[in-house]
Write a protein that binds this DNA or RNA. Sequence first.
DNA 1: ACGCTAGCCAACCAACTGGTTGGTAGTCAA
DNA 2: TTGACTACCAACCAGTTGGTTGGCTAGCGT
Lengths: 198, 198
Amino acid sequence: MSRDPSATKASLLAAARVEFAAHGAAGARVDRIAERAGVSKERIYGYFGSKDKLFDAVLDEVVEEVMEFVGEPGRDIAAYVRRVHDFHRERPDLVRLLVWEGMQGGGSCPNRRSRVEHYVRKNQAMAEALGLETAEEAAPLLFMFMAICSWSVVVPQVARLVLGEGIDTEDGRDRLRKHIGDFAEGAVTHIREQQSRV
Amino acid sequence: MSRDPSATKASLLAAARVEFAAHGAAGARVDRIAERAGVSKERIYGYFGSKDKLFDAVLDEVVEEVMEFVGEPGRDIAAYVRRVHDFHRERPDLVRLLVWEGMQGGGSCPNRRSRVEHYVRKNQAMAEALGLETAEEAAPLLFMFMAICSWSVVVPQVARLVLGEGIDTEDGRDRLRKHIGDFAEGAVTHIREQQSRV
DNA sequence: ACGCTAGCCAACCAACTGGTTGGTAGTCAA
DNA sequence: TTGACTACCAACCAGTTGGTTGGCTAGCGT
């Protein structure tokens, strides 16, 4: 058909992303990926070797994208958190892929080097904004921000139970967004106070 | 073998809990559950009808347990959050089951009634502790507390990347626990201040 | 003692799984 | 033109899946 290897590869990656985000590495079906890509599934093995390696390739790609799209935290940390929240809400793929990796994966963690680097950079930016001395001190904060920004993507059914059906409306989502911002704001002020007290 | 229906049922439920927590409803294997329970898999269909219904039964049971073991939030909310964190760390089953349900489930949400009730009760307790007027106002807070307490169970690989390898040691975990408590403390103070300002 | 029901299992089944293979057909250098 | 190389696919394969079936037997009421 297309006789354009790089286009075929890209098409497979795109299809795989949809499938993996929806079902995880274990739940994904190779046939569905191939069909969505409009390509014989044999191409998956020709280009990527196996289903799992394809998953890793997708993850690489998405992590790369997020580095590009979500900037680094600036002075106004609550604003940054809201930005991250917006990104995850609009494109839940990354969060879902990470969660699948964490829940199904055997702790292999591909592309480790660059991912660590990515988070270190964010931690540094955050430490600077908070007046903390080392990046490590900011890490738990970053981690918890990720948690509150992602949670409603990960357990939407719990969100509906706890926050009410309103969470499915634009209005309800905005309200949660505001709470998330406030929550972050509170935590940051708390830290700043502890900081100045020393 | 055992010829004791309720014992067989219980044995199946226990085995299913392990299997479902590890692999989710879709990833779980009926044969493995039966083998672990030391029972023919046909009994699963005899007692529960299908794999999915067995999953629901397990979820019911676990939710029930959590209601029992984790109390309600008292005056010291940070302490409550730490308690929840400890529970999830020691027994990650509940979190994992909820996440599988959220990621794989089709939004059916079995046992809805009692689960809503459970969260409403917690929201009320929390609203009271914070001096908020309605339970709904406390809901987002409860939701975010769940998030920060569960996150390292859900994406352990990210925890390792962000917080460093130390997270796998008892010491590192305690440090995170402390940060989670502080984080909650900060958010609560923030809310209390907003409250008193009005 | 005896039959009947309920708990149980080994064996089975059709559907589906990730992965492979043999062969076709574009494409490009010589 | 030819020959070789590469992208590609339909058909295939062995192993696994959730779910079913026919029959065995422990234990109870009679």
